[in-house]
Design a protein around this nucleic acid. Sequence first.
DNA 1: GCAATAGTTAATCAACTTGACTAACGCTCC
DNA 2: GGAGCGTTAGTCAAGTTGATTAACTATTGC
Lengths: 383, 383
Amino acid sequence: MTRLAGSSKLLRAMNESATLALLLDRGTLTRGDLREITGLSKPTTSEVMRRLTDAGLAVVVGHTSGGPGPSAEIYAANPAAGHAIAISVRETQSPHLCAVLCDLAGTEVARADVTAAADPVPAVAGLVDDLSRQAGLVPGSARLVQLGLPGSYDAAAGVIRHIDVPGWDRPGLVDDLATRLGATVAADNDVNLAAIAERHHGVAGAVESFALMWFSGGLGLAIDLGGTLLRGARGGAGEIGYVPVGLGRGADRTDLTDLAGGPAVLALAAEHGIDAATPEAAVAAGTPPFLDALAERIAYGLAAVAAVLDPPLIVLAGDVGRAGGDALADRVTAALRASTPLDTAIAATGVTEDPVLLGAQVAAQHALREQIITTLRDAAPAA
Amino acid sequence: MTRLAGSSKLLRAMNESATLALLLDRGTLTRGDLREITGLSKPTTSEVMRRLTDAGLAVVVGHTSGGPGPSAEIYAANPAAGHAIAISVRETQSPHLCAVLCDLAGTEVARADVTAAADPVPAVAGLVDDLSRQAGLVPGSARLVQLGLPGSYDAAAGVIRHIDVPGWDRPGLVDDLATRLGATVAADNDVNLAAIAERHHGVAGAVESFALMWFSGGLGLAIDLGGTLLRGARGGAGEIGYVPVGLGRGADRTDLTDLAGGPAVLALAAEHGIDAATPEAAVAAGTPPFLDALAERIAYGLAAVAAVLDPPLIVLAGDVGRAGGDALADRVTAALRASTPLDTAIAATGVTEDPVLLGAQVAAQHALREQIITTLRDAAPAA
DNA sequence: GCAATAGTTAATCAACTTGACTAACGCTCC
DNA sequence: GGAGCGTTAGTCAAGTTGATTAACTATTGC
């Protein structure tokens, strides 16, 4: 990291972005509060707020009352200063897109979804226009679009890998979308976004770090280290389906997918006399012996994760994790304690909405904040 | 992170620390170079350099020549502006301490070691005094001491865990050392320090991230993510000895220590007709069939690591890893390719000196730099 | 009417920049 | 081989930007 150097202009830009960041983080503050936190003087605070309100980035949302003296103005970041769009891409029978438009405060302003077999670029563009119309915004006013994908995005190569949705594996797609939409387009793995949702709206709010095991048709793992997601060399971090089980080679080789992937869960359910169409249905209908057996397999995979990462918490999420709930999480905890010296806490997901879309929404909102703050710092507004 | 706000004093402090950081990072620079990189004007650069040289933090080390115009002064950070001490703690028969005193440039100034059964505090203090005397420095002039420990230091609780060296498990020891020495005392796991050595003096210089498997009496793993080490919730990240092998329970339970720990390696060697006193001797004397069998076991453990983290590189280090060299690394690569779809690169360590002490030296030097830079930023020197 | 507080104004101060200037060095031309 | 010229390192002086201090005005509650 290069440390910053510069002249008084840099100083003003820094003070403005520090102030805006405080308003974004803490919600509502008076000038006095800002003075206290930033350590700036009264006239400077006033000048900074004048510029921020002139630029439409901050607004007065009320006045104090009760104490002696004149009432102080209460400021907040202007929620309408920017809008971002979160889109969750899914493959059911045909490509399906769910989208939410939210403002700078993270409030949902519009929601839409579309089932489209066509080229992703016009499909996304149409969805974005639809949302803007619904929200009564000028088309193109959403400066940031966050995609949630069932695959991994390699930003260096500009290509989405391991994705089953037709049309979405085309190299350069994300860049094409960015130019077509005139917006920054971010893309991330659905499991990673579910972890973001878990941190901000689930059970992982208080912990320093955690791992989220995504347990659906396939297996995945998101690793959140102090709020930053670990992606790995080629976006392959968390591919725990490949964790080996036993020393078998060739045809005897077994990995965690063979043990706890969708088909394996259904087979295990059948062994226990449970007839279900999907793994999550099997788990929801599960008898204690079946859940015990499944928990032991999950604990096996998590033991490897815990031995490598030592996270304070592992969250069980995805369709199966949610269906299993506390009953499954408690059994996994017991199985882990019984088989290893690791005492990592295990919990079921606390997110009730669509975790991928929700996570994309949080990610979009945060990226938008960052964008606005750095824009302020880089290009000091003209007098 | 709170963004900085402040007045012109902050600006000066920022410019000084940015300039000093550049000198520390890049070695030697002229005023013109500094001007270009920082974007500051000529008079400001001169003023900053005048202050840095007055404070003894920078020195003129030469003059340019050859081109037209007057010769420009070449500056460098003053190596004698600060000294740090690295100490590696080991348990052989009795506690053994190896120590190096180095200057701000990382150059070794003095070296000493001592075998002491006594209380760690006087032992370390004596060693530190000895080094200062050797180097001709005023006692107490080393402001930073970095310990390398065969255990994990829990800074929050102030206690060193999982350490076998007598006297070193006492709670509050590190704080006691800091007050006794009048210096900042940092402590870290020996495997983590070996990873730091590997990044700066071994084969991991160019990669973004890597994992280092420490393979000696016990098994350990250090995880370097972009230059930052992952420590885990309770300093337990990288305890890969606990990675389970197969689904056995109770007495049948097997983990990676059972498979590839010191006794297991010796047993495997014996099966192959190799009689050796230590695992590293067994590996050094190893026949191809033995190495193949061992590589397969190592690859099993690394498969779990690679599936979770997806590092671009895994380094085999420790006594056994070094003894195995490329022969072992190549066999592990082949075994990993044969048993999983992961194509992580595997290499033998490139560090030839004592990796723990070397890593502690690098860590100490970097912490000292950081200390000097932040001191400069926090307390602007009086005029 | 008084005490306390929000916010503004005016004067001052600190730090950086611009542009001009001095001085040193190497090259070239006579 | 020496004088002159172009180029470049570094300094000086003036001006600009932005923050601070301290005084002042105005508003509110008691």
